[in-house]
Amino acid sequence: METLVGIVAAATALIGAIAAVTHRNAVVGVLFLVLNLVSLAVFYVLLSAPFIAALQVILYAGAIMVLFLFIIMLLDLRREEERESGLLQKVLSVIGGGVFFLLLWGAATGGAAPAAAELPEHFGSVESIAVALFTTYLIPFETISVLLLVAMVGAVLLTRKGGR
């Protein structure tokens, strides 16, 4: 059962990602990316990370991708003709991508993996993550809130009309 769900989720994640970067219509591209993100959320549930899965849907699918969609609709990019990349660039990119994949895959799977550890009780539950976040990772957590503040100020400044 879980293997079947995993295979389907893997297939949709991959199809979604490929279609997201290749589709000519940016709105459809965003939808495929959402498909990819939701399939990854399914994976996270299978990997006993339900909290991250929920965040994935709320944050990624619900906020970030809606922002993308909003910008695309605001700019009305349907009319814009996209100039093609040159043939040479395409060929080189695909070759480079293939080599990159093989290198990365070799590096990721080549070494001897440590044996799978026993999962502690309540692994991946909201409580366990919250405790770690507010004890061990307190300083990164506070730093990230400063980062978000900076990003917010930056976004407001950049999109303000009429300078000054």
Binding site: I18, A20, S85, S93, F101
Partner: peptide, 20 residues
């Protein structure tokens, strides 16, 4: 990890190939 690598490669190719 294979799936993760494949997704990453798709992302890299997207950056290299698309102009939007």
């Amino acid at each position: 990890l294979t799936l993760s690598t494949a997704l990453f490669t798709v992302g890299v190719l997207g950056v290299l190939l698309r102009r939007n």
